[in-house]
Simulated scan of single mutants.
Amino acid sequence: MCSHQPLCPSADSSDRDAARIVAFHPEQGWNLLCNGAIVFDDTGELLPDGSIVAPSRLAVAA
């Protein structure tokens, strides 16, 4: 999907979040990256193949 140089990381690479944003929807809480991944404000992701990446949660000390 990426047409600029240098090419963005693919959606299946560990640094996929470094890809450029091509659609910005802060009112809905998500962004579409040029590698096809959808990144949500809660840090969850939906990848182009339909798989999900669960939101990362920080441990809270009691």
Rank of each mutant, 00 (worst) to 15 (best):
Q5S: 14
Q5Y: 12
L7R: 14
C8L: 01
C8R: 00
P9C: 03
A11H: 12
A11V: 01
A11G: 07
A11D: 09
D12Q: 11
S13C: 13
S13W: 05
S13K: 13
R16F: 15
D17Q: 08
A18Q: 15
A18I: 00
A18T: 06
A19P: 14
R20A: 12
R20S: 05
I21M: 01
V22P: 06
V22Q: 00
V22Y: 02
A23P: 00
A23V: 14
A23G: 01
F24I: 02
H25Q: 14
H25F: 08
H25V: 12
H25Y: 10
P26H: 04
E27D: 14
E27G: 14
Q28N: 10
G29N: 13
G29W: 03
G29L: 11
W30S: 02
W30H: 10
W30M: 05
W30C: 02
L32T: 10
L32K: 05
L32R: 12
L33F: 11
L33E: 06
C34F: 01
C34M: 08
C34W: 02
N35T: 04
N35Q: 08
G36L: 08
G36W: 00
A37N: 13
A37L: 12
A37I: 05
V39E: 13
V39I: 11
D41H: 12
D41A: 15
D42C: 13
T43M: 05
T43R: 12
T43E: 04
E45V: 15
E45I: 15
E45W: 04
E45N: 03
E45R: 15
L47W: 03
D49P: 14
D49Y: 03
D49L: 05
G50C: 05
S51G: 09
S51V: 03
I52D: 01
V53Q: 07
V53S: 03
V53E: 06
V53F: 00
A54D: 10
P55G: 05
P55R: 14
S56W: 06
S56C: 05
